[in-house]
Design a protein around this nucleic acid. Structure first.
Lengths: 161, 161
DNA sequence: ACGAATTGCTTGTAGCTTCAAGCATCTGAG
DNA sequence: CTCAGATGCTTGAAGCTACAAGCAATTCGT
């Protein structure tokens, strides 16, 4: 007995609206940050990770993992942020192949300035519209899906506070 | 008493992994469909909606709503699909400003051929890794968030079975 | 029935992501 | 020690999305 080749009604009721969320939520996040700070959500997240890290620096490869990005994507993003003076590149001390991305003082100021508006946006579109019980449910669902998407846990940012 | 300007620990635990999911899941869906059928997930979804609609046609504006797309985006996508013979444009009968997108026989074949692999992918990354209870929870969470993202319910595809 | 405003769509441009290819450095088998 | 393969990153080209502007058809006020 194999399953149907098409969605069952339940599956469709779960997936179709969730796919809409997948489309719409990232759009809102990017829109707010681009409008207010001229940063994509990815830019912001990468700068955040750098800002929270020891010595304000991370090797490209580490940062790529923490931000769930491919290395070419990150490289382009860092180039653009570098051109704006928010980040600079330095050759890694212990491996000459490796590059560290280092956030500048301007970059840190930018993160501090951008954070409250972004947090408000995430709250208003997600965190504030679900109950604490639902938040707990969402954490568990997310964990299950991430375990499948990223079995080795290489991606999926660690959680600096 | 206003709330903190930065995330609380709970908020971060909810949001950061979920943001990772938002990044990774769409990537997998696109990757499978591009690899196997040379379609983006958006292409597939638009073709699907056309295939399921009466007379295999929808006005651009309607289709844009159902696929959560802006009109310029849809217009470009339809142009590309048209160049591949999967869709054609026709002037709407009752309003000469409007354009209908009409799926061709080739387009319908393409959807039929693409569906089983895509459904399997959605199952393997989402539907099969959560329990039925979690699926129900996810439906409710999704509904709450969509009510905020799209208060008028203009987007967020209706559900043809 | 006339013109202003609105609606529906398309097009052009800029910007971001991806993929493939390439370069430099490091590692490890022999 | 040597060199073949692996690793870390960058770059260039191609493709997709978003925004702004523009055109054509329709609607509405008067």
């Amino acid at each position: 007995m194999s399953r149907p080749r098409f969605y069952t009604g339940d599956e469709q009721d779960t997936w179709v609206p969730f796919a809409a969320l997948l489309e719409l939520l990232p759009r809102e996040l990017d829109a707010q940050l681009l409008r207010d700070e001229d940063l994509t959500h990815f830019d912001y997240f990468a700068l955040s990770m750098l800002s929270n890290s020891d010595d304000h620096r991370l090797q490209m490869k580490e940062l790529a993992s923490m931000t769930n990005a491919t290395l070419p994507r990150l490289s382009h993003v860092i180039s653009r942020l570098e051109a704006r003076g928010l980040v600079r590149r330095e050759r890694n001390a212990s491996d000459a192949r490796a590059t560290d991305a280092v956030i500048t003082a301007d970059g840190r100021r930018k993160v501090l300035q951008a954070t409250p508006g972004h947090v408000e946006t995430v709250r208003s579109f997600l965190l504030d519209v679900i109950t604490p019980e639902q938040a707990e449910q969402l954490r568990e669902i997310t964990a299950a899906v991430l375990a499948r998407l990223d079995p080795d846990g290489r991606m999926a940012a660690s959680r600096p506070r």
